[in-house]
Design a protein around this nucleic acid. Sequence first.
DNA 1: CACTGCGATCTACTCGAGTCAACAAAACGC
DNA 2: GCGTTTTGTTGACTCGAGTAGATCGCAGTG
Lengths: 339, 339
Amino acid sequence: MTTSEVHTPRGPVTRKDVARHAGVSTAVVSYVVNGGPKKVAPATEAKVRDAIRVLGYRPNATARALKMGSNRTLGLVIPDSSNPFWALLGHAVEGAAARRGYALLLTNSDNELDTEMRHIRNFAARQVDGVVLASVVFEPDLVELEGAEIRPVLLNHSAVAPGFNSVGVDLEAGARLAVEHLIGHGHTRIGLAMGITADNNADGREAGWRKALEAAGLPEGPLARDVFDRAGGYAAGQRLLAEPERPTAIFASSDMQAIGLLRAIREAGLSVPEDIAVASFDGSIEAEYSWPALTTVEQPVWEMAEAAVSALVGETRNEAPQHRIFPTQLRVRQSCGCP
Amino acid sequence: MTTSEVHTPRGPVTRKDVARHAGVSTAVVSYVVNGGPKKVAPATEAKVRDAIRVLGYRPNATARALKMGSNRTLGLVIPDSSNPFWALLGHAVEGAAARRGYALLLTNSDNELDTEMRHIRNFAARQVDGVVLASVVFEPDLVELEGAEIRPVLLNHSAVAPGFNSVGVDLEAGARLAVEHLIGHGHTRIGLAMGITADNNADGREAGWRKALEAAGLPEGPLARDVFDRAGGYAAGQRLLAEPERPTAIFASSDMQAIGLLRAIREAGLSVPEDIAVASFDGSIEAEYSWPALTTVEQPVWEMAEAAVSALVGETRNEAPQHRIFPTQLRVRQSCGCP
DNA sequence: CACTGCGATCTACTCGAGTCAACAAAACGC
DNA sequence: GCGTTTTGTTGACTCGAGTAGATCGCAGTG
């Protein structure tokens, strides 16, 4: 029994405990843990490392965050993390953040502006380093963030809000791709199952559908507007099928809507693609496993997430805001009529 | 122009700025913001509230967390947040946490033990108040948490690890429900498309399938083991269909596997439920919109999430760990042969 | 008038870690 | 031998907020 008995602290182990155990000052512990900013003698470093291991010391990230002004955390707001498209986006953003050593606070807005603003305010209070907004977003929200010196990235479809970073896809070009493909199959009455967006009928997908028809000299087919999920697509489908002149092809503004649409078509005793051809937008896995497999416009979700995160954590602070628009790609499967 | 000109601070606004602006001490600002622990005169409170509004003060949650020892954050580890079942669970946990004023750090383990442990360590460093583990989880991991005084909840299928809180469903009873329903349709050769678990062939679903067959005096059908997603179900399906004596019904251990299974069956030129009946486990929305709609054993995901979160943030600190097992419910649709 | 009592407010310390200025000791040059 | 650099270590201050304990002013009482 010696007088230099190890004192096992009861609470969580702090830097101070390590310092005492190793017989050095707290500064040295810091230097060892962070490898800087000052050098430490090898012998001393060994003592400290020993003490850390013995005591099971784990630096308190909260304290570090307070001192450094960053807790290496990003926030993400999406409408509904159980919707496969948003789920994939969330997964991609989480991955991109994790790869850079950032953690991700994920929240659902349920498409409610209040909820979204509450989350944004919460993020601001928590001093996150950046926020990826893929939800409702009205400009007023963003002011909240400015005061808190938090960088936002808009990761939604229509890139609005000049002065803020944004990442999106070329909705119009993508939609044209799909509709032109349907036209290529000989269809002349092509309907649209459109989602509901904040700035209605200003959506690129709708414009793309319209322009593709116009360019081919075709009349505008029927249009049904409903929410962006399976149930919305189902309801929109029922309305489109009830049209006096039924369309022979339908473009859906999301894969989820297409899934609901397929169900509505089947329930009407019709088959895809024989009676009605279908194409949609997003390129989620579910489109691949539906019956028939959906021809869909694929968004480069992983690249988009990567771009959004790098705009937030990059060294590009105080640079001019960037607007990145990614191209889409048509994934041809069976629902359009291809073999 | 007066000498008591407002000094607009350049950095983020702190309590000190508010105090100066309102002509009071920082303590009073604190009392106003938190409504305690000491009373403040109405007139003073008004001054402070004014200053807060004018300056746009937002208390720094990180500093608060350091002082209070809690940052009102929970961690969640799931295998893959883009898998619909985990996505739903994530959504439910996020909701349950948000309702209690907690934020949620979401991470994916991709079924890799190292990744999971890295996340757990990261959670520990960040001093989260609790961790919901719905992933690989070997006991060694949990030791990490003990040292950090963080409460874990195991939210996986098979409730293991005595000494830790856990929330799960009665896998065996659920599987029996489904298989017995298939038996009720007159099937005698019932196969199993089983997922791959850490403790293989100890999974309740497999046991339930076996016991239901045994109880009905039926022979064990063919069994194919593969991963818990669409691709796994597809591969398992192909193997089951290649069996010398093809099963007339198949129970899949997850909805995702069933989706892949349906595809394999269709590609083999067979139809569901005429040639092969299918039932599965989980009760995700995708099962409702598949073709044909899947008969599935529904897990009460929202209740489970609620239970998990309340075990973490509850006042039940230092109580004996709880093990909650929820019952499942059979959702009958068309894939089993029901009209 | 002195004294208590009480409500309102302020001062000062705390949480745990980062880091700079200051300093001691060792190493070097001549 | 003495001055000078180098190397290693430390004490002390900081981040922003919570709150106990001290202090102040004022009303009520004997």
